[in-house]
Simulated scan of single mutants.
Amino acid sequence: MKDIKWVFVFYSLAAVASMCGIGVAVAMRSPLVGIAAILALVFIMGSGFKTKKRMRDQGLL
């Protein structure tokens, strides 16, 4: 349990929530909500990969 990187757990849960938001947008037939959810997903995934690279470069992974 001590090796869990909680920041990555947060990023993954936020990405899953964004994916769920895409599903909700489809169900609502709302393109605006869909675009917002897709943009949020891209931002969250990008931030997660950027954080992983930064931590790997610092030797924390």
Rank of each mutant, 00 (worst) to 15 (best):
M1Y: 11
K2L: 04
K2E: 03
K2F: 00
D3S: 04
D3E: 08
I4R: 05
I4L: 00
K5G: 01
K5N: 06
K5T: 07
K5M: 01
W6P: 01
W6N: 05
F8P: 02
F8A: 02
F8E: 01
V9C: 03
Y11I: 06
Y11D: 02
S12W: 14
S12T: 15
L13N: 11
A14K: 06
A14N: 10
A15D: 12
V16Q: 14
V16H: 09
A17G: 03
G21M: 02
I22F: 01
G23I: 03
V24L: 06
A25C: 05
A25Y: 08
V26M: 11
V26K: 02
A27S: 13
M28P: 00
M28Q: 05
M28Y: 04
M28L: 12
R29I: 11
P31K: 01
P31L: 12
A36V: 14
I38N: 01
I38P: 00
L39D: 00
A40R: 15
A40F: 12
L41S: 00
V42R: 04
V42S: 11
F43H: 13
F43E: 10
I44W: 03
M45N: 10
G46H: 09
G46W: 10
S47D: 15
S47F: 15
G48S: 14
F49Q: 14
K50D: 10
T51Q: 05
T51N: 14
T51I: 06
M55H: 07
D57K: 15
Q58R: 15
Q58K: 15
L60Q: 15
